[in-house]
Design a binder for these strands. Structure first.
Lengths: 143, 143
DNA sequence: TTCCTACTCTTGACTCGTTCAAGAAACTGG
DNA sequence: CCAGTTTCTTGAACGAGTCAAGAGTAGGAA
């Protein structure tokens, strides 16, 4: 369980200033994986009621740019965030309710990271999204 | 080269009514792969100046639901569309300018279509996005 | 400790892609 | 050609996210 001190170290390690909103955002993202901005704002304000939505947006941008947080945004959804963990995991997204689940990379160690023909692009990341129906929506539809 | 008749057949094949806006949208999507809605509206209006933006939005939704058109929306971008072709191709997206290029699936025939653990999800599609810098932006940055 | 500077946060307005709603127009089967 | 339903037009509205200016704060230097 990461403590406030761990978040401090993460921020300092990325050469970022340690501020209450930022540590609160990191904590909120860890507590609510795949949460949208609104949820994060709510979670942050449960500790620091006076934090503005703009501070949360700024923090999320900064943390994303620093690589501490990962932003994901499936089509048709608002932006969602998760703590960047070094592993190469991907996401299952429910077409019906938008639920997101983590899934390890399909074939071992980053198999899809190299395109068959990169068209001259300098690729630094491959993102995989599996679309389908989550168990709940699946049973709801068939019944 | 697909003609208006081909588009008609595509619509009828999907049990959709054949209307001018819809055929124009199909034509525009074929002429401008990966175009955003604004571009498509512009292309449609070059033929049918009186078409409302709402008709284009409606057509795109309908065509997407029917599977004739595929909607893609990389993080931080607006919605983009391309004609659905049966192949399993993916996309290269430039982090700097947002350019999109097609790329064939990395390892043959839909390798990533099966997650290592589907968590009970009924997966019907796997989407792969390669993030990086396009040739232009790549040279612009290094210089 | 105290001060200074640059970075961060607050406040509040604003943008713009997309959606909603009501009525007019048009497509299709009979 | 007609009826009935779907689709399009018009115009307003929504909301996630951004912009901007000034107040506040973190962190290094003295």
């Amino acid at each position: 369980m990461a403590t406030a001190l761990d978040f401090q170290r993460m921020l300092r390690g990325a050469a970022l200033r340690v501020t209450r909103p930022r540590t609160a955002v990191l904590s909120a993202v860890r507590a609510h994986p795949h949460a949208d901005t609104d949820t994060i704002i709510g979670a942050v304000r449960s500790r620091l009621p006076k934090v503005s939505h703009q501070a949360v947006y700024d923090s999320l941008h900064t943390l994303t740019a620093a690589g501490l947080v990962r932003r994901i945004q499936p089509s048709g959804s608002v932006a969602r965030y998760e703590l960047r963990v070094g592993d190469n995991h991907h996401h299952l997204v429910c077409r019906a309710c938008g639920a997101i689940a983590d899934v390890d990379c399909a074939v071992g160690e980053a198999p899809c990271l190299t395109a068959s023909d990169d068209r001259g692009y300098a690729v630094d990341e491959a993102e995989v999204v599996y679309w389908g129906l989550c168990p709940d929506c699946s049973t709801a539809q068939s019944s």
